[in-house]
């Protein structure tokens, strides 16, 4: 019972973060902020859902379910390392290629260096 509740909470949280990622990916104004949403939200939600699935395997403890559970946790660890790195690489490539970043003229943000209000 407690296990089921934990699984449900993990997968629901993962789905919630996925929705946040999608909204951010669509609604954010420029390349960098969109990558920010995709990189962080995607990683966390995938890892949460995978942990939920791994816990689901531990309902019946036997060698095969333990093996599957640990394989899923392994995938989660891999995603936790690889996904932010890939986001960083794409972001860095965009910075190198001088992709324009978003400016809000109304709020005068971000301010240039040495500029005062």
């Amino acid at each position: 019972m407690a296990l089921n509740i934990a699984i449900i909470i993990l997968t629901m949280a993962g789905t919630l973060f996925f929705i946040g990622t999608t909204v951010g990916l669509i609604r954010f104004p420029d390349f960098y902020t969109r990558m920010h949403a995709a990189g962080k939200g995607d990683t966390l939600s995938t890892v949460l859902i995978l942990f939920g699935l791994a816990l689901y395997q531990f309902h019946h403890l036997s060698v095969s379910t333990l093996l599957v559970g640990f394989k899923i946790i392994f995938i989660a660890v891999l995603i936790f390392i690889a996904s932010p790195t890939a986001t960083h690489a794409i972001m860095d490539a965009g910075y190198e290629a001088k992709v324009e970043y978003w400016k809000n003229k109304l709020l005068n943000w971000p301010r240039r260096q040495g500029e005062e209000d």
């Binding site: 891999l78 690889a82 790195t85 960083h88 860095d92």
Partner: peptide
């Protein structure tokens, strides 16, 4: 050539490639 080597990419590659 870029002078600064990308530490994040290289450390991640070092971790992932053996796996």
């Amino acid at each position: 050539e870029r002078e600064d080597k990308d530490l994040i990419l290289q450390s991640a590659a070092r971790m992932i490639v053996p796996m």
